[in-house]
């Protein structure tokens, strides 16, 4: 599905960003320009699902660690 409609970000794109090392809320927001005026800001306020997908795809960060961090 589309995780962000303003930027047309699909789950695949979020995984791609995760693989490239964008695994913090601030780096994802910067990469996708979620702070810009033409973005509704919802993803910025509720960034967890986007972050979870990106982290899950990051080779440097195993999924178990991501789950532990989320709990």
């Amino acid at each position: 599905m589309y995780v962000c409609l303003c930027r047309g970000v699909t789950e695949a794109k979020a995984r791609e960003l995760g693989e490239a090392g964008y695994i913090s809320a601030s780096s994802l927001a910067a990469a996708l320009r979620l702070n810009d005026d033409d973005c509704c800001g919802r993803c910025l306020r509720e960034i967890e699902p986007l972050l979870a997908i990106a982290c899950g795809a990051c080779p440097r960060r195993p999924a178990a660690l991501v789950r532990a961090a989320a709990n």
Binding site: M1, Y2, L5, T10, E11, R42, E46
Partner: peptide, 10 residues
């Protein structure tokens, strides 16, 4: 949140 899938079943 406007939920849009990438294909029909989604």
């Amino acid at each position: 949140r406007v939920a849009v899938g990438e294909n029909v079943p989604e």
